[in-house]
Simulated scan of single mutants.
Amino acid sequence: MSHACFKFGAAMLAVLCSAAAPAATLSVAHSFDAGQCNLPQGSLLRTADGSLYGTCFSGGANRAGILYRLAPDGAFSLLHEFSYVSATDASEPGPGPMLASDGRIWGSASGGGGENSSGALYSISTDGSGFQLNAVFSADATGVFPSPLLQTADGSFYGITNQGGGRGGRGTLFRYSAGAGLVKVITFRSPRDAVFPTAGLTLGADGLLYGTANSGISSDTAGNEGTLFRIRQDGSGYQRLLGFQRATHGAFPTGELLLAADGNFYGVTTQGGPLGGGTVYRYTPAGQFTLLHAFSGAASDGAWPNGGLAQGADGALYGVTLHGGTGGSADVGTVYRVALDGSFTQLHSFDTTSPAGYAPYDRLTPAPDGSLYGTTWHGPAGASGTVFRIQP
């Protein structure tokens, strides 16, 4: 049973009102060459020296994706080209590579260990040496298509898979450790709980794992439009905290939940809400749901937020939409800012001809100077996308 409650009043006023746009500067940090990268993934890793690490879902010499580094001066380095056929490599790397406690970069991929794989975990040194295929997934045993990874204090990695996990399986929660290897913790089976999770996990201040699933009914009479859940690290104590309802919460939550500095969780839904274009919401540890912004698809607003949220140096929430804005077509997109009181500002609207490209995807990465970095799937004139920097 959901113990969330929905607040109207001042929150709804914030939903329907937008702040006047401040001056925001967007620049191109890197433009990908044709063939070098296709579908650059977001959720870039920023390390202490100011370097950015990211992946491309496909491209490179083997057409199976790449891992790259952008130095603080903008210099591009190709660190690894993934392979579809090698038994010791992965393919189609996902977003969100992370710097683990061993000092190496860890990530997930849709394939690995040769052809017909269901996903993989890999690690590599920050200079591109020492690539290692750490685990390969199987549809029945561990699930299919792993999410970005979360590392806990004991060194274990956690994530979810979108599908599979045995008979009736519709996704799994998994753990990887050096001692035990890859282990399926639970299988998601029932729409009354959660099915088809699409994002990674977030570690709460209480030590529990929090996540969302793209499907899951909210009641016997409501639609199958998403779930927010929590679970202990050992797989016990699963709780469905919220069943999303299209009109009030939004539909189809996506991206990892953000545990912000105020101790609350923040997230997005790609569709639904009072205006139909998706939502930004807050969920407190006490179980209170608040709608912060509802997207309408208007030129000054956008629609279909994706990839979750980042908290900027100013404490506000930043994200991207895949649709909407002033660009004039559906898959163009925007960058936006939402203050914790719900006030909304569109910072940038992409178009199909600008050097920064269009169709931003996944979470932005904040830097200490207040700027944020992101990626676009497409560049101008059919180019392969960009890494961009926005200074609010």
Rank of each mutant, 00 (worst) to 15 (best):
T172F: 02
S156M: 07
F32W: 07
F57L: 15
Y68F: 15
L67M: 04
A316Y: 02
S129N: 15
R282C: 11
H30T: 02
G94T: 07
A14T: 03
G65C: 06
I105L: 11
G324H: 00
A205L: 15
I160A: 15
L208V: 05
A383T: 14
F8C: 03
S215C: 09
T284D: 13
S58W: 01
P191W: 09
A359M: 06
G42M: 02
L203T: 08
T47F: 01
S147Y: 11
S300T: 13
G243V: 06
T227Y: 04
G319H: 02
G111P: 00
G382H: 03
I124L: 14
G226K: 01
V320I: 13
P305V: 04
L150D: 09
Y53F: 15
G307P: 00
A24F: 01
P285K: 11
G342L: 09
D301W: 06
A286I: 12
L242W: 02
S86G: 10
L182H: 04
D220E: 14
P197Y: 06
G287A: 11
M1L: 08
R363P: 02
Y210D: 01
G42C: 14
Y68C: 14
A64E: 01
P380Q: 10
G307R: 00
S329P: 04
L241A: 03
L372N: 00
L317P: 01
Q151Y: 03
C56Q: 03
S110W: 14
S51L: 13
S18T: 07
G119C: 08
S147E: 12
Q271K: 08
G223D: 14
G328Y: 09
